[in-house]
Structures are given as C-alpha cells and as structure tokens.
Simulated assay, not measured.
Amino acid sequence: MAKKQKMRNFLVALFFSLLLLSTFINPSDYQKTFQATLFLWVKYVIPSLVPLYIVGNILAAYPFLSFFFYPLFKNLFHFESQKSCSLFLLSFIIGQPSITLLIKQAFDKETVSIREANRLMRFTSHLSPLFIIAMVSGKPFLARTGYLIVLSQVFASCLLAFLSKGTSKKMSSIPLETEVGFSYLIEECPLLLLKILMIMIIVSLLRFPVLTFLPGFGKILFGRYLLDLFEITTGLASIIKYPLQLPVLTALIGFTISLSGLCIIFQTLYAVKKTSLKLASYLFFRLIHGLISGAVCLVCELLL
C-alpha cells in the first residue's frame, strides 16, 4: 500500500511538473487556452444555466409538473411514485450532477427505493436544452440541429425508462424538501457558475502537457476526441470543428452529450460515493444512452 501511495504521489508530482513546464514553454498558447475557456463560459454556460437553474430549483420545491404528468407516465415509465416522475422531469432542466444529488436526497429520506434510485440514475438527462441549442447554433449546423439533438436526448431517456423494469411497490409521494428562495438563488447560483468555470480552466490546463509534449496525439482525431471528453463545454467547442460530414458530426455530438464529459461523470460519482447506488450501471447506461441518441441524430439527419 505504501509503495502504491508513493507511486501515485510521484506520478501526480511528475504530471504537475510537466504542466508547469509546459506553461513556460508555450506561454502564448497557455494564455490563449485560458482566454478561450473564459469566453466559452461567458458565451454558453452563463446564458444557458442561470434561467434553468432558477426554474429547476423552483420546480424542485414545487413539483406541480409531475402532478399533471404522473398519471400519464406512471405506467408507461414504471415510476413507483410521483417523486420519481418529478425527478425524471427535473433532470431535463437542471442536469447533472444536481439531479444526482436530488436522487440521493430522495433515497436517503426513503421517498424512493434503492431500486428506483438506480433506475433514475440510468436514464436521467445531463445537459440543459438551452446549452445544447446554444452550442450548435452556428455553422456548419442547420437551425434545426440543436432541437434535433435535444429531442434525441429526450427520446433516449424515455426509451431507457420504458425498457427499464420498475418495481411493483408504490411509495407515497412526499414533496421534495428543497430549500428555495430569492436569497438562496442569489447566493448559490454565482458559486455554481464559478465552480463550473474553475473546472473548465483546470481541465483545459490538464490537457496542456499532453498537447505540449505529445503534439502528435492531439492531431489524431481519436486522440483529440479523448482529450475533448475531459470537459463537455470546451470539448463540444472543439468537436464541432471536426472535419466530418454533418450527419456523422451531429451523431457524434449527440453521443458525447450523453456521456457528458469526464468532469460531470466524476462529480456524479463523487456525489454518490459511500452509497449503495450502482456506479457501474450508471456508466454503462450513459454509453447506451449515447448510442441511442447518436443513432437517432444520424438517422434523422440522413432522412431530413
């Protein structure tokens, strides 16, 4: 165990030494990377996150949407309670890792069963529709592309919910005890935005040594894609420039949005650590979700 810890410490120290060295070798590229990340945060993250963050928190506290949709969806998607339906609908608005925290909260308070919590982890959506539409609003995409990708995400989630076997046990629907108020939103929203910005900057810098010392890796399309999977905002901004045919590019973006990037995955895994929620199942169904979304995007782009 001590040897493994020493090796881990050595690798971490080596990596950050290379990171520091790479910033000295390419100071201009470092500044461009930093500025580009900040630009993406201002252009895409803030406009798409703030309104839906506010709406999502209000709906979490007052789940009136599920009151109307639960009678329609409870048998179709096998929800065990109105709470499950509410969490499912919220996932399309607030995304990850916030929806995972709400699922964990509901499980801890025993308002959803462990089986239902694991089901919800499999098919809840990750990114806000405003963010998706904003990311693909320019060339080379058509005006409909953003809406197509959003619909493919909804379809993939609904299909997995339909195919995922529910439990015959029905639980009472206790409202989510979510703190919400104007002062709360004013305090929490800026902190969330800054957290996202810091993650974007850190991930951009983590890729910097690879691009500096292994420049050929980033020139290979597959290698470039692996680096772009680190963080979804900067990754999508890079993926939309890939030299691919529009149907294939749209399908790749749909697939990537389902995966959501390593940053969001790690945040989600951290949120559910030391719980009985199944992490392997969550990761597997992220992949399945991506394949469904990508296939829908590809077929629709070829037919439309």
Rank of each mutant, 00 (worst) to 15 (best):
P129M: 02
F213V: 00
S125L: 06
I201M: 10
S164V: 11
Q105F: 01
Y270T: 09
V203A: 09
T178D: 13
Q245I: 13
F67E: 14
L101T: 11
F123S: 14
V150T: 02
A237P: 01
I265A: 08
G146W: 10
G216T: 06
V180N: 10
S258Y: 03
K219T: 00
V50H: 05
S173T: 14
Y282D: 02
I257G: 06
G138F: 00
L87C: 15
D29I: 12
F182R: 09
L214F: 12
I132E: 04
V154I: 15
Q96N: 13
T212D: 02
A237D: 15
S22I: 03
F34G: 03
Y53S: 02
F24D: 01
F266P: 05
L287K: 03
Q267R: 06
I292D: 03
E110H: 15
I239L: 09
T268D: 02
H126W: 05
G223N: 08
Y53R: 00
M135Y: 02
M1H: 12
Q105W: 02
G254Q: 11
N57K: 02
P97R: 13
L227T: 00
I257N: 05
T250D: 12
V272E: 01
G56N: 02
V45E: 05
F39P: 06
H78W: 08
Q35Y: 09
Y147T: 13
L14S: 15
L185Y: 04
L120E: 13
T256Y: 07
R8C: 10
F182K: 10
S113V: 08
K278G: 06
